[in-house]
């Protein structure tokens, strides 16, 4: 600080900080606006990739995701996000978006069905807080793979959803209609359970 010990008038200080703030905001605005298109494209590609993964397209890279997505999927009309999609194995499927709340903030996912009342083809889950929060690994394959082949309807054709339950609890729910919760993430698992109930109105 030895060199900087000159005294500065209040006027100078005020002027200095004003100039600095204006310069900073101007610079940031230019940078953000300049990079925005790329960022938006990234987000679109990310979403397309999530859905494609659920539909069984395993090795999609983000640069090809959007093109592939527009080829195989088509948004259905309606308020909710529902897409018709041609799955990786060629069969026609339906993708439905579900939204819910984990312990920390929003969680969402896409559920792919082969068709009306058929078993689950695949799911992806995602959560907003990308922080390494403990026990929030619903996005990991080891959890999502548990849903494959499960059914949203019981043997009598009534909607049951796929329940996310702790191992051994509520034994009256048939194995086809349940998956094991993540141990140590009870609340998040409950959030997923609740989120999937939304499918009641949409699976038809």
């Amino acid at each position: 600080m030895a060199a900087g010990m000159k005294s500065f008038s209040n006027k100078y200080i005020f002027f200095y900080i004003t100039v600095l703030v204006v310069a900073v905001v101007a610079l940031l605005t230019v940078v953000t606006l300049g990079l925005k298109p790329r960022q938006t494209a990234n987000r679109t590609a990310d979403k397309a990739m999530q859905i494609l993964h659920a539909a069984g397209y395993q090795d999609v890279t983000s640069d090809k995701a959007v093109a592939l997505f527009s080829r195989v999927a088509e948004k259905k009309t309606g308020e909710r996000e529902v897409y018709g999609i041609r799955c990786a194995d060629g069969s026609p499927g339906v993708v439905m978006r579900v939204d819910g709340k984990g312990l920390w903030g929003a969680i969402w996912g896409y559920v792919v069905l082969d068709g009306e009342r058929s078993p689950v083809k695949g799911v992806v889950f995602s959560h907003r807080s990308g922080t390494p929060g403990l026990g929030a690994n619903i996005a990991e394959e080891n959890f999502t793979s548990r849903f494959v082949g499960k059914k949203l309807y019981d043997a009598n054709g009534n909607f049951t959803s796929v329940r996310v339950l702790q191992k051994g609890k509520s034994p009256d729910v048939a194995l086809d209609n349940r998956v094991d919760a993540i141990s140590g993430a009870t609340l998040t698992s409950k959030g997923v359970d609740k989120m999937l109930q939304q499918l009641n109105n949409e699976g038809k």
């Binding site: 900087g4 500065f8 200095y16 900080i17 600095l20």
Partner: peptide, 11 residues
């Protein structure tokens, strides 16, 4: 050399 010492942390 232009930073006033009083506000250097803010700068």
């Amino acid at each position: 050399n232009t930073i006033p010492p009083r506000i250097r942390i803010i700068v």
